[in-house]
């Protein structure tokens, strides 16, 4: 079978050149992703430095249980993704599809939990905007009386945390949805028998992307959910 050869695009000289190009391209893409989320993290860090108590209080309303559960789910999905890449390297079409479906299921569980959490925030009026309402009834964390917490706009600072919570987790969720789209594309390709031991770059690249999305969450979880436990 000259299967690998047929995947060589006209402007490349060899499969190796083509694979190295897509790999470098993907890493560069991830570099720009780091800068994209980096901007958010910097803004978050500055406001957390400015309003530590407000961020701690606001963070207390997030469910550590759900967050931790989702962290485990996402790490498992990274494992199944890695196994899918391994299956692709071995040219095992059936296993590629199985592992990708498993990854997609885990991703859906994550997004489902996220949906539950968002709904809960909505019911507690914690979605930033004109309807936002901060009622200090949270007893897991005693709010010390300081110049910061006594500030007339303390609720505004709490809302700022939620602005970041929704933008950051929202951007993360958007990346997951894009990842799901990529995986559907991979399944279609796999069903058509496009992958082989010589050609599996799309699986590998989607894998890299997925691990990146996973790592972003590894940073988001402590920054958003565990702030008040420090």
């Amino acid at each position: 079978m000259a299967d690998g050869q047929s995947h060589l695009a006209h402007h490349f000289d060899s499969m190796e050149q083509q694979r190295e190009s897509s790999s470098l391209g993907m890493w560069l893409f991830l570099a720009q992703e780091v800068m994209f989320f980096g901007g958010l993290f910097v803004a978050y860090a500055i406001y957390r430095f400015k309003y530590p108590e407000a961020f701690a209080v606001a963070s207390g309303y997030l469910s550590v249980g759900w967050g931790a559960f989702n962290t485990v789910v996402l790490i498992c999905s990274s494992l199944t993704m890695a196994l899918a890449v391994r299956a692709a390297q071995l040219g095992d079409k059936k296993k590629i599809i199985q592992y990708i479906v498993a990854t997609m299921l885990l991703a859906c569980v994550f997004l489902g939990v996220k949906g539950v959490e968002y709904t809960e925030k909505y019911h507690h009026d914690l979605v930033p905007g004109p309807a936002f309402q901060y009622v200090p009834d949270f007893d897991a964390y005693t709010v010390p009386v300081t110049a910061e917490t006594a500030h007339p706009n303390f609720a505004g600072h709490v809302q700022l945390f939620y602005s970041f919570y929704f933008v950051m987790t929202g951007m993360h969720a958007l990346h997951m949805v894009i990842g799901l789209g990529l995986m559907i594309w991979l399944i279609v390709k796999a069903l058509r028998g496009r992958f082989s031991r010589e050609y599996y770059a799309p699986v590998e690249m989607t894998g890299l992307y997925w691990h990146f999305v996973d790592i972003v969450w590894i940073f988001l979880f402590p920054l958003l959910y565990l702030v008040w436990r420090h």
Partner: peptide, 14 residues
């Protein structure tokens, strides 16, 4: 769009 205050000083933004 959501009238939140990320850069709005009235809401503690910078």
């Amino acid at each position: 769009i959501f009238s939140v205050g990320i850069f709005d000083p009235a809401l503690g933004g910078d």
